[in-house]
Amino acid sequence: MKRTEPLEFHQPTSLAEATRIMLDGGPGGYFLAGGTDLVIAMKEKGLVPKYVVDLKRIPSLSGIREEADGGITIGALTTLREVEISPLVVGRYPFLAQSAAEVGSIQIRNRATIGGNMANATPSADVAPALLALDAKARLAGAGGERVMELKDFFRGPGQTVAEPGEILTELLIPPRHPRLVGEYIKFSPRDMMDLAYIGVAVTLTLAESDRRCESVAIALGAVSPTPMRAPGAEAVLLGQVLTEELAEEAGRKASEECNPISDVRSSADYRRAMVRVNTKRALLNAAAGNGPVPWTSRRDRRYA
């Protein structure tokens, strides 16, 4: 990696220290989590940080815990592999565990963190749609103290978030959800693994016990707009309705109209829209079928439902 100036490397052990180093250091500083995005940017895009603040030695930032109210808090430095295999996540929201498992390889997921994945604000980040479909919130800590916001409001554009200089994404908060909430994440890509999402769709549903009407609906999309997004129009199609194949198809069509994909070397915008349509339908129907955790091989085959 080309570099003529030395890289200052900081390893704070507290949040306050991390923020202070960043504010004192001024422009050219980068927080380092798993490094799977930052190091590639340094190698491929010619990014030359003046200094790096490694967050991995701050103990409070890692781990997954259940709150008294039934919510789940995931520390930002929790690796995607930890999310993928966490019994709590796998048991409660298997589609969230699966979305983590869709990122890169085990080697990557042993390094990449859920907070880094969000803070990097890649439109195709697999975990983002699953978290958005769970109405997740982001907790940030900075010089001005802490703040909590809706995760969807955290993203500003490709690679951009609302975090202020020195402000650190510390936790992702999944509010308590209805015990009957079910969900599904479908990553659509040509290879079965080791690919970026050409599109990603996460849905959650709560179906009434009596008549199976949709009491809650969330549809979130990845890789089809500058930030991971919710599809409110598609959600409205279903809310209060009994989910049928026709309605799922209709919601898929609506979602494909709401998104704003680009054409690139991976896919045309038109194909992305078509895949949003099909996979939103499938995700809804699969979610409603409501199965627990599934091994990856079954997950793969569910895309062919």
Binding site: R191, D192, M193, D195
Partner: peptide, 16 residues
């Protein structure tokens, strides 16, 4: 060349 990487030039992996 628009895809000069193993991320976008797709060799088959063990699952493909």
């Amino acid at each position: 060349v628009r895809n000069p990487s193993f991320l976008d030039y797709h060799l088959v992996t063990s699952v493909d």
